[in-house]
Design a protein around this nucleic acid. Structure first.
Lengths: 157, 157
DNA sequence: TTGATTATTGAAAGTTATTTCTAATAGAAA
DNA sequence: TTTCTATTAGAAATAACTTTCAATAATCAA
């Protein structure tokens, strides 16, 4: 669906995003570029919350407001560029969206918050079959496994 | 793990819950009984939020406070009697917990909120394998498929 | 059964992630 | 450029919980 080649350079990413936004009468602004850059530079398996974004931007000496961050995130989710994931309690995390085929899922330690990503074609297939069976149009699916990691098991003597 | 036979009568359910609570130095109080009763009487596939509970209790002319509801829900989740599920945005839903073997998952319409429950042993197996592979102790898993139901597809002409 | 102990309750105040509001700013099309 | 209007920052508002605390009530022991 989306052509999210993470290896094209940032300028290129900006052009792609700009035309995608302009199609919809939206604009590629400075804050939106900064936010996208953070995600492009974030290694796979890492996820950013609004607060993470706020601190990463302001730590560089630049300014941004939370309202801008939230609006940009929602916009990119609506456009299908990003995905909202539920990892820890009480806040939302975001990641760049990849195609359905290489959709990944999350294994989360409920104590320390450690997150592993994994792929499982059975899960992907299950989501497709289930939507088909009920006449639904598939939008997204989230498979999150909660457990306690080895480190936390040991430290809970 | 838990013996949640939904067909035993309420008085029996209360006795079971009471001894379970007393084991931990906790008490079975009026509000807790009312909340449990709502869940026992709720048909499968339905889920209750704190607000749902508040309205169902107060509509009967009885009183309850949100703090009591939230405290009771957390307690029952901690005891493994209930499960917290993420269905719609912005709030949490709760359901009685069944054994891992017959763990079910959710197909949600992102427009109207319609929820279907389904079981899929492949998903259950995937969660077990993934936790095992990383040395995690499995606590729970949530598989939620988001889509648009047939009715909403048609009404979006 | 009765009283002592202490978990639990309701009401109100507090918290926190997110959203809305508004005047000022700045992309993009002409 | 200039015009049009999407977007911004910052502050105020919201919504879903959570905490606090004095009053109440479930349980245990006698």
């Amino acid at each position: 669906m989306e052509s999210n080649n993470l290896d094209v350079n940032l300028a290129n990413q900006h052009d792609i995003l700009r035309s995608r936004l302009n199609q919809e009468g939206l604009r590629l602004t400075g804050p939106r570029q900064k936010i996208l850059d953070l995600f492009v530079m974030t290694s796979e398996g890492e996820h950013l919350s609004a607060e993470d974004i706020y601190y990463q931007v302001t730590t560089k000496g630049e300014k941004i407001s939370y309202s801008t961050i939230y609006r940009a995130l929602h916009m990119m989710v609506d456009l299908g560029i990003m995905r909202e994931v539920e990892l820890a309690e009480g806040r939302k995390y975001y990641e760049l969206r990849t195609s359905l085929a290489k959709q990944h899922h999350h294994l989360v330690c409920v104590q320390c918050g450690e997150v592993h990503e994994f792929e499982d074609h059975r899960v992907t297939k299950a989501s497709q079959q289930e939507t088909l069976g009920h006449g639904f149009l598939l939008r997204d699916c989230q498979f999150t496994v909660y457990g306690i990691c080895q480190t936390c098991q040991l430290s809970a003597i």
